[in-house]
């Protein structure tokens, strides 16, 4: 029958599409970042690195990721454990926990802006409690750490759901018998969690961590919504160079940095949470 060629025909559109819109553009980014009119150059990288905002942007991005991802992991594990333990109302609570999954990072930024802006709900609450007389300007450059904290909160609020859903479905794959066996052998709930759940959850943890870390390196709209350009991050700088400074090459150089740390993080998680083939579920 025609079935020998059929699979390739079915894959052809997707392959072609990914070649044109995924592989080719990434090669282009590399070319943009490392070439000028007459061949290879490190000039764009130097321009980027010598700009005063580069160091701050890199530091902010990495620090944000380093703070956000571990908290999210802990929170997502708690949520996933709660959901798997639930007997009644499971689907409702799961749905509520999952809501932020469908929201744009820009929307999340605006939502937290409603809380942190000068006439916002945080100031209103503090005033209501009598802590302050006058509303504080939280999101100004004088209060850089508040902007930072607001971004952390907004990101945790928005993107923990995705981790949770991955972990919940990962936990769903762990057969109940393992827990029963562990319980029979006298393991406490905490021991069961650390000795059964976590090791068997490794593939899901790996995916969740990779996905979230890469997304955290791409943090953009939340920062813009809460702090404008006051808090420089890599993705924001990329955007600035592309539009405000109109220098595609330096924007591409920034892109290479984001790509570089993303790949590095992926490799680290792949290595760290490697599950030997024989030990898979």
């Amino acid at each position: 029958m025609q079935s020998r060629f059929l699979p390739y025909m079915l894959l052809a559109p997707a392959t072609l599409f990914l070649a044109v819109f995924f592989v080719y553009p990434f090669v282009q980014i590399g070319i943009l970042a490392f070439s000028s009119g007459d061949g290879f150059t490190m000039g764009h990288i130097q321009t980027m690195a010598s700009h005063w905002k580069f160091g701050t942007a890199l530091w902010n991005t990495v620090l944000l990721t380093a703070i956000i991802v571990p908290i999210q992991l802990a929170l997502a594990l708690s949520m996933a454990s709660i959901v798997t333990k639930l007997k009644t109302g499971r689907s409702t609570i799961l749905f509520v926990f999952a809501i932020p999954l469908g929201l744009s990072d820009l929307a999340a930024g605006i939502i937290w802006l409603a809380i942190f802006e000068q006439s916002g709900f945080l100031n209103s609450m503090l005033a209501g409690l009598g802590v302050i007389e006058q509303p504080i300007l939280f999101l100004g450059y004088q209060n850089m750490w508040v902007i930072f904290a607001a971004v952390v909160l907004a990101e945790i609020w928005r993107a923990t759901a995705i981790m949770m859903v991955i972990l919940v479905s990962g936990m769903g794959l762990i057969p109940k018998e393992y827990y029963e066996a562990a319980e029979v052998f006298g393991a406490s709930p905490w021991k069961r969690f650390t000795k059964v759940t976590l090791p068997l959850l490794r593939p899901s943890l790996q995916t969740a961590l990779i996905l979230r870390t890469i997304a955290a390196f791409e943090v953009f709209a939340v920062v813009v919504a809460l702090g404008g350009t006051t808090l420089p991050v890599l993705m924001g700088e990329t955007y600035q160079w592309q539009f405000t400074m109109r220098d595609r090459n330096v924007a591409a150089a920034y892109a290479m940095v984001i790509l570089g740390i993303s790949i590095a993080a992926t490799l680290v998680f792949l290595r760290l949470l490697r599950v030997p083939k024989e030990a898979r579920l």
């Binding site: 819109f21 995924f22 080719y24 553009p25 592309q242 892109a255 984001i258 993303s262 992926t266």
Partner: peptide, 15 residues
């Protein structure tokens, strides 16, 4: 593809 910061594709694709 998910290990790549995909929104960055917009830069070369703009050209």
């Amino acid at each position: 593809t998910r290990a790549f910061p995909l929104p960055l594709l917009a830069l070369p694709l703009a050209v």
